[in-house]
Design a binder for these strands. Sequence first.
DNA 1: CTGAAAGCGCTAACAT
DNA 2: ATGTTAGCGCTTTCAG
Lengths: 349, 349
Amino acid sequence: MKKPTINDVAAAAGVSRATASRALSDYGRISEDTRNLVKAAANKIGYTPNQVARSMRAGNTKTIGLVIIADFTNVFFDRATKGIVDTARANGYEVLITNTDENLEVEREAIQTLLEKQVDGLIVVPSTAAVHDHLDAQNRGNKPLVTIDRMVPGINATSITTNDFESCEKAVTEAKQKNHTNMAFLIATSTVKEPQEEKPVLQNSTIEDRVNGFMNGVIDNKIKNPTWIYSPDDPDKAEQAITQLLKTKNPPTIIFTSNNDMALAVMRTANKLGLNIPNDISLVTVDDSQWLEAIAPGIAVVERPVDELAKLAVEKLIEHINNKTKKPEKIVLPTNLLTRGSIKNLKKN
Amino acid sequence: MKKPTINDVAAAAGVSRATASRALSDYGRISEDTRNLVKAAANKIGYTPNQVARSMRAGNTKTIGLVIIADFTNVFFDRATKGIVDTARANGYEVLITNTDENLEVEREAIQTLLEKQVDGLIVVPSTAAVHDHLDAQNRGNKPLVTIDRMVPGINATSITTNDFESCEKAVTEAKQKNHTNMAFLIATSTVKEPQEEKPVLQNSTIEDRVNGFMNGVIDNKIKNPTWIYSPDDPDKAEQAITQLLKTKNPPTIIFTSNNDMALAVMRTANKLGLNIPNDISLVTVDDSQWLEAIAPGIAVVERPVDELAKLAVEKLIEHINNKTKKPEKIVLPTNLLTRGSIKNLKKN
DNA sequence: CTGAAAGCGCTAACAT
DNA sequence: ATGTTAGCGCTTTCAG
């Protein structure tokens, strides 16, 4: 009734446990005949290896831990997860997944749990760059770490991020070229409780990058009096802020949002106010998704190479696993501005 | 340099390995003083338990395997994954995830791998109901299995599905009440290579359920000459079929799609042909998503209780893990038709 | 080419 | 209350 072990195989084949192991794992010196004999016996009694025992012996689990924030309105982490799982599998690794919901304490515990399960390495979307003791090499048992989407300075880990700065800057320029001069920027950030205009400390390098890109675009293009709204990533609060914004005397002609949640909030608010995108208000956001392209008009976005990022994350992690002396890298992947109908051309022809 | 083990803790505390274990795992008889002594020692040398060794001993891994199709245009499996991971974690389990891309061979291998990693149970979205030898109890080492989204008859597993039949039927009735009589149904199915009107063998119970629901709605409401299109889940092929459909002399006034991919295809095609939803063509689909509600007009959908499904899947699985004699259940969760602006009211007032 | 035996880190009988 | 010992299933020296 119990699952057959390698002992059972050995018994069935009339050889020692050691020989059975050699035959099944194709290593060491063993005669062709015995190997076949053992394999036949294993097959007959329905033996399957116990990878836990093998891990115990080998000191590795062929398992990667993925600690990711659960942002399921944002296609980015979904696709990243899929890419990581698939690439890992293609390289003989499985993936243990944990969500953090952007919560540092949860992140801490998740990493701890994964380490106790003896993962060979970690891929983490760090919830913040400010606190990182739990990511330090000695506190992660010197297990290799790759951070994705965000950079944490000073933790001896390879990071794979995207150059959001450039495309966000470019987005502003694009808008200017279509004669937009009254611009608003809606930034989702977990570091504020209520929407505010003043720039708070931002929670991670990616948001920072986007904001800086927008700001540079504003400077480059000599945009006057841009409106900045830093909002919690909460639909209601965002909608409330957008409603106020759009009801001012001189509302912006275009809104740039830092993520999909905020873009959705703009769309909902526009609908409620009876405003049309792009005739009444133009919109640009970050992270492409099928629906952004399928709706009419399509929504302009900063597109990020998520599949490549995922693949690279796994490959780099495995390199680190196989070579503990490999130096960490800082990889920044290019992004791309996809112009679509949601940016109205205000030029008079 | 190596990670401290329980032996090191024992040595540091000046007690035996057994005592150290008792102290750390809070079991057996042990004095308060020794417990504290051991815990302090463990803390001091930075001991963390090795769960692989513990698993080896205990015969369980506190890990569940999730085998899911990777459909990242469909919010359903994303949210299901998140729900499963979170619920598992709340119950002290981690989740090993594998994608199958609806491929049976991949599914086979994935299950095999997860079993070798000694998961305590499996949650599977079975790619087909037709072949299930790999899901049979004896071929999964009698490990508990919960299938979600789809039912596979004859495999001694708990299944958690949704009542898509009812809401799909209701959707047709809703359309009829808004005076639609010329209807088309676009069904994504992996069992055809080219779009066809004839009903093929469908790949799983869920699609079957939706088609049957639509068909019943057609009969209930005495809809004449409905158009059925069974298309591969491929944007190009679907768009081509939709284009043909919309260019006929008497095009339908409404299209029902079986999933998000097909709904996106309808939207894209409508855009290309310069048709407006809902003025030129109405649309209803299955599985809600934030954007379906945020765009103008909102797209009507059959909404499924994905969070509840995910939670239930984990809870039922854990019940099975804890009680091997528990009988499998067949759970069907209710669905809900969300009427939105994408169904035009054709009634003359 | 094969077998005997040790040991990965942990827990749980069984002694004391 | 604590220590001794065996063993989970596997791989890998070391002998032969």
